[in-house]
Computed example of a mutant assay.
Amino acid sequence: MTETTLNDVNAMDREAFVAVLGPIFENSPWVAEAAWDSRPFADVDALHRAMFAVVESADRQKVLDFLNGHPALAGKEAQAGEMTVESVGEQSSAGLDSLSPEEFARMSTLNRDYQARHGFPFVIAVRGHTKDSIFAEFERRISADTEAELQAALGQIAIISRGRLDRAVAA
């Protein structure tokens, strides 16, 4: 597979841009579609800033819908094999694809309780985390204020999307 360069990205038509960069933000190709208008990008940082600015400028309902497009950790999407390739790799890197029955039950309860409290799934950049550190973050953040959690989720998505972008586009 050939590596996509920033020059390639800057030369793409909207359809190709969305095809290549649509997966950067989970189940949200609209982010790439809107960011296309900001071309050309001076560097990958500028590309990421333009893409994330699309999310930040969305109205609250669109942001909530965006957050709800993210799969629950080791949740029903994972069990049914319906997660994006990117999420599968990320969750497996932290061992979430090999939870014990007890860990799976705990994760399911945390997912359910977090969603019920905040109205969107728990989001964490799992690369570099272990199962234990993810559980600790889940426990720490579940009782936080919903507005603070919304901002925390967006911060985690910034980390996730930047990592995905770095893997997709050569600097």
Rank of each mutant, 00 (worst) to 15 (best):
L73C: 01
G95S: 04
D97R: 04
L73I: 08
R49T: 04
Q61D: 13
H118I: 01
A94G: 04
F120I: 01
N68P: 08
K62R: 10
S92L: 09
M107W: 06
G81P: 01
D45T: 12
Q79E: 15
G128R: 06
A58L: 06
G89K: 09
E103H: 08
S38V: 00
P71S: 13
L96E: 00
K62Q: 08
G89T: 04
V55T: 05
E137R: 14
D37G: 07
A144R: 05
F138V: 10
G119F: 14
E137C: 14
L99G: 08
T109H: 12
E102N: 10
S93A: 06
L64V: 06
A72I: 02
E147L: 09
T84C: 09
A136Y: 12
A148C: 05
H48Q: 07
D59L: 06
V123R: 00
A78K: 02
D45P: 00
N111Y: 05
Q91F: 06
P101A: 13
L96F: 03
A144M: 10
T109V: 08
A80D: 15
A105F: 14
G95A: 02
K62D: 06
N111G: 09
Q79R: 14
V54T: 08
T130I: 10
A144T: 07
A46G: 15
R49L: 08
E90A: 02
